[in-house]
């Protein structure tokens, strides 16, 4: 490609690329051409700001229809009923075995003493209505065979590990519910449970324990959905030091550009006077050196420029 053809982008062309640019969907060379154009064209930079505002608008909660309350649990219950024994296509060997075990119901009190482990919390999946519909009677006991041995008189002794499913419900502000949610947030093998738990906790972030859990999830959870929910929960606290520090680290380290974008936006919207923002400034300077996402670089550049221009006015 010759220089004449390839090295310039006019305004008209630039305008068609802005939305893709903000979504990091341009290829390397297009992005470079666009950035060169933006550098020299205030009008297109203004258009970019508008495009960004449009994107922000689309991300507000008003842009979306919220799933009506109860619909998710209804769907789950209906689905569970479809798969339940008796329904067509269900009923493999495991399920039949499982249901026979349902007959051996040990009184809860005995369980408490025997196992030390008291209650298996139904932490979401077949919650609500499905409790009745998912085939197990109340007081249903889950069991796993722990060991088997010959008892000597021709009998076989089977040792079962028993757990009893139990549902706990309460208002979100209740301490017991919060403790269970805080534990569920750390469940290492169940990202779906973590996403839902973070979502339920994020309205409670005025509690410092909840906030710490959200920060921990934001910085450490491997699941993008969990981290996104965590950052949403923290946005009211973007002026607090612990949250800002976490956002700074996320800006530098998170693998997901969408999450880095949210981090930089939150940091920028809540800037303290430059003297108090040394860590943020350092992080943003580092971002300029190695961030590949154009939007994030642009935001950092802007923040740094603003702080130099009027360091005491934020």
């Amino acid at each position: 490609m010759s220089l004449r053809e390839g090295s310039n982008m006019n305004c008209e062309e630039a305008r068609t690329q802005l939305s893709l640019y903000l979504l990091s969907e341009l290829d390397f060379s297009r992005e470079e051409l666009l950035e060169q154009h933006l550098d020299g064209c205030p009008a297109c930079r203004e258009e970019l700001a508008r495009e960004k505002a449009l994107n922000a608008l689309l991300q507000t909660e008003d842009a979306r229809l919220e799933v009506p309350a109860g619909l998710l649990s209804r769907c789950r219950a209906d689905f569970a009923a479809q798969l339940a024994p008796g329904a067509p296509e269900a009923g493999n060997a495991f399920v039949r075995w499982w249901n026979r075990l349902g007959d051996i119901v040990i009184p809860p009190a005995a369980l408490f003493k025997a196992a030390g482990v008291a209650a298996l919390v139904a932490a979401g999946f077949f919650a609500g209505r499905s409790q009745q519909r998912f085939s197990e009677p109340p007081g249903w006991t889950a069991a796993r065979v722990k060991s088997v041995e010959a008892a000597g008189d021709g009998q076989i002794r089977v040792v079962l590990d028993e757990t009893r499913q139990r549902e706990v419900s309460g208002a979100p502000e209740e301490e017991q519910i919060q403790r269970l949610l805080l534990a569920a947030v750390k469940d290492p093998t169940d990202p779906g449970l973590r996403v839902e738990s973070v979502q339920m906790l994020r309205g409670r972030s005025e509690s410092s324990e909840v906030r710490q859990a959200l920060i921990h999830a934001l910085e450490n959870d491997e699941n993008d959905g969990v981290r996104l929910k965590a950052i949403e929960g923290l946005n009211r606290f973007a002026r607090e030091l612990d949250t800002r520090r976490a956002l700074t680290r996320v800006l530098l380290r998170d693998a997901n550009p969408g999450i880095r974008t949210q981090a930089v936006d939150l940091l920028m919207q809540n800037m303290a006077p430059a003297g108090l923002e040394q860590e943020t400034v350092g992080a943003m300077q580092e971002v300029l050196l190695r961030e590949e996402n154009g939007y994030i670089r642009l935001r950092c550049q802007k923040a740094l420029a603003e702080m130099k221009a009027s360091p005491g006015t934020f």
């Binding site: 030390g116 482990v117 209650a119 298996l120 919390v121 569920a184 449970l193």
Partner: peptide, 8 residues
């Protein structure tokens, strides 16, 4: 993986 509730 299950969430257990332990009564100490």
């Amino acid at each position: 993986m299950r969430l257990f509730w332990v009564l100490d």
